[in-house]
Write a protein that binds this DNA or RNA. Sequence first.
DNA 1: TACCCTTATTTCGTATACAAAATTCGGTAT
DNA 2: ATACCGAATTTTGTATACGAAATAAGGGTA
Lengths: 238, 238
Amino acid sequence: MHVLLEGVRQQIAEQKMDSIKPRKSLVEQTYEILLNAICTGELGPGERLTQDEIAAKLNVSRQPVNSAISILKANQLVADTGRRGVIVTPIDRDLFQSIYEFRSVIEPFAVRLAGMRLPESAKNHAGAILESGNAAVRSGDVGAMLQADIDFHEMIFRWSGNPVIENSMRINWHHIRRSMAVVLKDPDAALPVWKDHADIVDHLLAGDTEGATAFMHNHIEKAHSRSRTALEALEPSE
Amino acid sequence: MHVLLEGVRQQIAEQKMDSIKPRKSLVEQTYEILLNAICTGELGPGERLTQDEIAAKLNVSRQPVNSAISILKANQLVADTGRRGVIVTPIDRDLFQSIYEFRSVIEPFAVRLAGMRLPESAKNHAGAILESGNAAVRSGDVGAMLQADIDFHEMIFRWSGNPVIENSMRINWHHIRRSMAVVLKDPDAALPVWKDHADIVDHLLAGDTEGATAFMHNHIEKAHSRSRTALEALEPSE
DNA sequence: TACCCTTATTTCGTATACAAAATTCGGTAT
DNA sequence: ATACCGAATTTTGTATACGAAATAAGGGTA
């Protein structure tokens, strides 16, 4: 049924310890799998999640599935429906607007703070991110492009030195991914995005904080109107 | 042991249906009880949460407790400690600073939006909130004062018409409550707070959006410096 | 044929049970 | 007395089991 959920048991079984971290619990793994399925659209808006089905697919018991769904519910990614189980939250265009309205203030603010607190590693880090972004654009892989975009903006957030900014955006990224997976059909629009990113970094590294802030503001506004028109074209039902 | 947790079984047993809503699940109730215990300081920073103990105290099984803790973990209110269970996240003064830095931008922005989208019910709603705030100050109940303060700011957020703003602050309120429960020993400082609130509302209702925005910015800055000095006085260990 | 009432099936919420991991405690050897 | 090793105890994570609620199905009657 859901392709991405197939063969997950192997991943869980392998459990390669990529770090010191204790291996992730089944709850965390189940959460991440479901989150990803929702964000990529594999689990579509309105679709029902049945615990038995998911548990069987992942070869785990219903218990971790139940906990994972509790977290998804707390993050507004699924919603209670009357009495029986949960459904994937419908994609809400108004929410999308609100997220960009929010970003239009938060992202320039993050740039301004970043200008004051730029770490030494900034130049190297930025180079790597910009490179991976351009590589993603060349590859044409929409998922990779989205991830690179998120990575770029989270880099700015981290430079800002204010963890609350990154935290406040974490949930929003999920919703953005969900909408973008629908919107981002033509990758041609992705090229100017990375030109913007490079401009922002250049001005930041050159010490022109205010310039970089203005660039970021402009960048968000452009992204907003671009995706808005794409969404409207997609669903003409106003 | 923990007084606030006592007698909860009765609350759970009563289950008076105050609305159409299906009665809350044990997971939700457990989550709220634990959240409240953490925010009021009854469960102190660093304290360990043992599932058996909590389950026994609440007369429920470990299952809902486990799920509730998963959500607390996702909200950064408890943290994994090595291998055995979780502890209440230590109060982080830097996080507190970051929250106020964040608010210094978000709250004025919310006021600006509210000025553009003020609902008709605003006047009545504001009157009730301001009244309950002053009542809380008169009563001297620190918890009630905190709740009234949160209610006021959430009212502004709702007026802003942007749900992302309110969502992004939801977790922050928990941390603010936690720190404030420590700080707010002298309620004398609470009076000017509600003068500020009244000023903001007055200017908003009079159509002076920019004035209200400036008042809000000033209000947050004052609250920030006030609580910062209180915190520093409390823990001189810089 | 359409509607309603009764029964069967799904599916969730919660409790209980079991096994693995980690800590603590006690005993022995140096 | 101290350090180290092993058994007993805690405590968690996960699986299984059970009961309740809601939907779906089926049959009888108007």
